[in-house]
């Protein structure tokens, strides 16, 4: 068990060191194209995790306890207070849910079978700096939902998901040295039904 801990700490330190080499150790970092690309990957990785979690939570084959565990993991991706704003093709009205409520509703959907898949396409915005110094961007992805009810009725939709991404330069002290790294958190998500 101890050795696993050492390996984990070692990997973590290596990750921080890589970050330190990638990004300048300044309080007001400027993002050069290479660094932007690195942050892109980091942000997209979080979105990839989220899409994976959504597919698991929505899957009717996922046991209740496992779905709850995945919801907790998914919540760790988000900044506090993040919401989902959902609208359909029939109504432009946006309904707002807390992220946890959204996951719970997804878990409780009344279908016998559910399949959630994602299109290849993704679009990543510029990162813009906000007054507190954090950077904010939006990643757009497309999801296909298929649900089959007990009586065999099939429902399917395609939704566009615009996901807020917050990027923040943080520091941690390791061996008396301050090491900088970039932290990515997801924020509000706009979900709109669309046509393929």
């Amino acid at each position: 068990m101890k050795s696993i801990k050492y390996i984990f700490t070692g990997v973590f330190l290596l990750f921080l060191q890589l970050n330190t080499q990638l990004f300048a150790q300044t309080n007001e970092p400027e993002l050069a194209p290479g660094r932007k690309a690195a942050i892109d990957s980091l942000a997209l990785e979080k979105v990839r995790d989220l899409s994976k979690y959504i597919s698991i939570i929505g899957d009717k084959e996922t046991p209740f306890s496992e779905a709850n565990r995945v919801i907790e993991r998914a919540m760790e991706l988000f900044a506090e207070g993040a919401q989902m704003g959902v609208s359909s093709l029939n109504s432009q009205e946006v309904k707002y849910y807390g992220v946890r409520t959204y996951f719970r509703r997804l878990m409780a959907l009344n279908y016998d079978k559910v399949k959630i898949s994602w299109f290849n396409i993704q679009y990543i915005s510029d990162l813009e700096r906000q007054p507190d110094g954090r950077y904010v961007g939006v990643i757009t992805i497309y999801q296909k939902f298929e649900g089959i009810s007990e009586d065999g009725m099939k429902y399917q939709d395609t939704t566009k998901k615009d996901i807020t991404v917050f990027v923040e330069r943080k520091q941690t002290q390791i061996g008396g040295r301050l090491i900088g790294f970039w932290d990515v958190l997801l924020g509000d998500i706009r979900v709109s039904e669309t046509t393929q």
């Binding site: 400027e30 993002l31 194209p33 932007k36 690309a37 942050i39 892109d40 990957s41 942000a43 997209l44 979105v47 990839r48 899409s51 898949s117 994602w118 299109f119 290849n120 396409i121 993704q122 679009y123 990543i124 915005s125 510029d126 990162l127 813009e128 700096r129 950077y135 961007g137 990643i139 992805i141 497309y142 296909k144 991404v165 046509t195 393929q196």
Partner: peptide
């Protein structure tokens, strides 16, 4: 320079689910 960019990633997120040209 305040504006930075999250460049477009070529690494796809999902799978091919039919014609995506409209997207």
């Amino acid at each position: 320079m305040l504006i930075t960019s999250l460049a477009y990633s070529q690494d796809p997120l999902g799978e091919y689910l039919g014609d995506e040209s409209a997207f």
